[in-house]
Design a protein around this nucleic acid. Structure first.
Lengths: 170, 170
DNA sequence: ACAAATTAGTCAGCACGGTAGACATAAACG
DNA sequence: CGTTTATGTCTACCGTGCTGACTAATTTGT
């Protein structure tokens, strides 16, 4: 009887625990994007612009196809926002030297400023959370999040750092 | 000199650590929604339908305004998807007894089945991650995620469980 | 050298889910 | 009885995904 009760209770805890995880992800993601969204609005941009700016800032000289592989959207979708960002002087395209078909993407100074402005609130939000809980909890957070990723995405984080794109011919 | 170098290094680690956090959130959220999205497609539904089904399942007898407060979308947006779900027999509306203006929402059996089907993949993904890392890391994850929320949302999780809506007149 | 594959871009059209404003109805409240 | 609240509807717009079809420049492989 005691065993049965414990079992049921654990089942309940488990179910509740999993739901909590799902909801934490939902609420956290929404609040994580809320502040940048407001800033973007002032520029007539949306979340898609933010993502492009972020990853171009993260990986200077990234090619269009590498960016597509990260974002997992179609080139038509990317083209729309990337085109706006280039035309409005936030991103610079340089023809590749090794392969002149490639357009290597980079943030301009203007683009860099916007990137910093957009990500600042997010960095602060994470920094605040990290500070609140201590290094051990942060490590736990990192582990759980990694555990939720597919192998392919997980690879991007393996050494815990240097921003290198997966070995792609450049 | 040694101090300075350490300082710089810590700054780098910090920046890199924060970026890692941001990206973990981005990738995890995307993969978290990918599988349900495929299932939803078969029903002609989208992510918005999933959210409604999830929270109605989570809080049976929830009112429309409570649901709006959770989702933080406009009633016009909600109305579109909620209407479809009701008309197609996934959700039941009952007139409130205490307040007959309210429509208390509940999943039908059909709705419950869909909810289980949709959330199952997500529960498994979380369960897998939790299992991979152990209880301590899970607690760290929970703490960090809570730290990223606004006070208002955090309140929903405070006792670590019982699904009770914030004290709203019902 | 030339054909094939790759990289990038464009145009048109569609779906989804968010927004806003305006308005309607029923019920509760004071 | 007038006001407020809860819900719903109609219209229109926007951002951001998607597909399909097509073009151009460049590299690669035989």
């Amino acid at each position: 009887m005691a065993d049965l009760k414990a079992g049921v209770n654990q089942l309940f805890l488990r179910e509740e625990e999993l739901r909590t995880g799902m909801e934490l992800l939902f609420y956290a993601y929404r609040e994580f994007t809320a502040e940048p969204d407001e800033i973007l609005e002032q520029y007539g941009f949306g979340r898609a612009h933010h993502r492009v700016i972020y990853f171009v800032g993260r990986y200077p000289k990234i090619t269009v196809s590498e960016l597509l592989a990260i974002l997992k959207i179609t080139k038509q979708s990317l083209s729309r926002v990337l085109g706006e960002l280039v035309r409005q002087g936030f991103i610079l395209q340089q023809t590749g030297v090794r392969d002149r078909r490639q357009r290597l993407l980079e943030l301009t100074e203007k683009g860099n400023e916007l990137e910093r402005q957009l990500s600042e609130t997010q960095r602060q939000r994470i920094a605040r959370a990290y500070r609140m809980v201590g290094a051990e909890a942060v490590e736990g957070f990192r582990k759980v999040m990694l555990g939720m990723l597919e192998e392919s995405d997980r690879a991007k984080f393996t050494p815990l750092a240097p921003p290198r794109l997966t070995a792609v011919k450049r």
